[in-house]
């Protein structure tokens, strides 16, 4: 019998994660195939290419992540870089409710 107090941890399970991966791939596949059944009105020419938006989404996002990663080498610094005090604020103190 399942423990009633056991917390909900479905997303932590490897089987669930595997299932979500499948859902993602299948949804991507459906959007690709769906283009065969629609009639589009491209404005610029290139947006008339088959699966232009899928390619734009994939290549564009990959390029942005790689750019961010490359820039991170130069732009990331440790948290005390500016030498400001970093007090650990207890949650009850936020908004000054504790005082």
């Amino acid at each position: 019998m399942a423990d009633p107090k056991k917390e909900f941890d479905w997303f932590d399970k490897p089987t669930s994660r595997k299932l979500l991966w499948w859902v993602l791939w299948i949804t991507c596949g459906i959007t690709v195939v769906a283009e065969l059944f629609i009639h589009r009105h491209p404005h610029f020419g290139i947006d008339g290419w088959f699966n232009f938006y899928s390619i734009l989404g994939f290549v564009g996002c990959a390029a942005m992540i790689l750019t961010a990663k490359a820039l991170g080498v130069y732009l990331k610094r440790s948290e005390d870089y500016y030498g400001e005090p970093d007090e650990d604020t207890p949650s009850k103190d936020i908004d000054g409710n504790a005082s």
């Binding site: 283009e35 938006y53 899928s54 994939f58």
Partner: peptide, 9 residues
């Protein structure tokens, strides 16, 4: 298409 492939990435 745009959103799902960005999620995939």
């Amino acid at each position: 298409q745009l959103l799902m492939f960005s999620a995939l990435v």
